[in-house]
């Protein structure tokens, strides 16, 4: 196996999923035309890539409890909060900690939905 074969075989997995650069692709395709051993390797890699892709695409998605766990952790109580109005129409101004930042924010409550008015570093 010469250096051209080595370069070709290194790139075959990415060629199989269509993400090699134009110059590399031209070089690789020219080499495949002239090298029977690399063509055999290409057939094997293409089949392998297809099988792995199919398998990974059949993996499940995360369950609903995962998002529930995330929301539970990203909703810490505010340091301070002032609410004016009601559930149907109202405004809240709050102060909270996000990572290393202290944020001052305001929300508009309209018909049960919350709309962020602003959130700035305090």
């Amino acid at each position: 196996m010469n250096r051209d074969c080595e370069l070709c075989r290194e790139l075959l997995p990415w060629y199989a999923v269509g993400v090699v650069g134009a110059a590399e692709r031209i070089h690789l395709e020219e080499h495949l035309e002239s090298c029977a051993e690399c063509r055999a390797e290409w057939a094997q890699v293409a089949e392998l890539a297809r099988a792995v892709q199919e398998t990974l695409r059949e993996l499940p998605s995360p369950g609903e409890r995962v998002w529930g766990g995330i929301t539970a952790r990203v909703q810490p109580g505010p340091l301070a909060r002032v609410d004016v109005g009601s559930f149907l129409l109202g405004v809240s101004v709050w102060l909270t900690v996000r990572g290393r930042h202290v944020l001052l924010g305001g929300d508009l409550r309209l018909l049960g939905r919350k709309y962020r008015l602003f959130a700035e570093e305090a």
Binding site: P13, W14, A16, V17, G18, V19, V20, G21, A49, V52, Q53, L56, R57
Partner: peptide, 12 residues
């Protein structure tokens, strides 16, 4: 690497 190449189709 296998996931990033074959599932994500990310260039090397």
């Amino acid at each position: 690497v296998v996931f990033l190449a074959f599932y994500e189709a990310l260039p090397y």
